[in-house]
Computed example of a mutant assay.
Amino acid sequence: MVGREGHQVSTATNGHEALKAVSLQRPDVVITDILMPEKDGIELIMELAQLGARIPVIAVSGGRRAISSDFNLESARLLGVCATLGKPFSREALHQALQQALMH
């Protein structure tokens, strides 16, 4: 969906890969799932802040059995992300989040 909006997209399967990618080429926006293997989205958001990256972040979560998506997304908001999306989300919701992040 992001590519269809006309944006160039790079992907990473976990927070470690995302940090490495950010260090090689600074993106305009990071969209991260909260639940990922090895290094989750909360850790990624915190490490980006510690590095002083000042990259707008959109956090996405569908939750899991023990933790709701609302809890995950509220945790991300407390860490300063510019937008959050609960799964499933619409193309319009993603578009709005991207616009908000790019103006951030």
Rank of each mutant, 00 (worst) to 15 (best):
L98F: 07
M103F: 00
S68H: 04
R26N: 09
A59E: 03
E17F: 03
A59T: 07
P88N: 05
L79F: 14
T32Q: 09
Q8C: 03
S75H: 15
P27D: 03
Q100F: 04
G41T: 05
G3V: 11
P88M: 04
G41C: 08
P27F: 00
I55N: 02
E17P: 08
G3D: 12
G62C: 00
I34V: 13
S75N: 15
E17W: 02
L79A: 13
A21L: 14
G41V: 05
E17G: 13
G62N: 05
H16R: 08
T84R: 10
A21F: 06
V30L: 06
Q25R: 13
H95L: 14
G52T: 06
E5F: 15
L98E: 02
M103D: 02
L78E: 08
G3M: 14
R4D: 08
H95K: 15
V81I: 07
N72W: 03
S61Q: 14
Q25N: 14
E92R: 13
G86A: 15
V60L: 08
F89T: 13
Q100N: 10
S68F: 07
L24F: 13
G41L: 08
R77K: 12
D28G: 12
M1A: 14
V81N: 10
H95E: 15
P37H: 01
L24S: 13
T13K: 09
M103H: 00
S75R: 15
I58A: 03
K87M: 07
L98G: 03
L48S: 04
G80L: 12
G62E: 01
G15I: 10
D70N: 10
V57S: 03
I58R: 03
M1D: 14
P27C: 02
R91F: 13
S69F: 00
G63Y: 03
Q96N: 01
P37K: 06
A93P: 04
V2P: 04
I67W: 00
L24W: 10
V29K: 01
L19D: 07
V9P: 00
F89C: 14
G15R: 09
T11S: 11
L51Y: 00
S61C: 13
M36Q: 10
P27L: 00
F89P: 11
A21M: 11
E92C: 03
P88C: 05
A76T: 10
P27V: 03
S61D: 14
L73W: 03
R26W: 04
R54D: 12
H7V: 06
G52C: 07
V57H: 01
A83I: 04
P88A: 02
F89L: 14
M103W: 01
A18H: 00
G86Y: 08
D40E: 07
A53V: 07
K87P: 08
S68V: 06
R54T: 04
L19R: 11
I45M: 04
A12L: 00
T11Y: 10
T11C: 09
L51M: 06
T13D: 11
T32E: 08
L35T: 14
D33R: 11
E5P: 02
L98A: 02
V22Q: 04
R91A: 14
D28Y: 08
S90E: 10
G63W: 01
D28W: 09
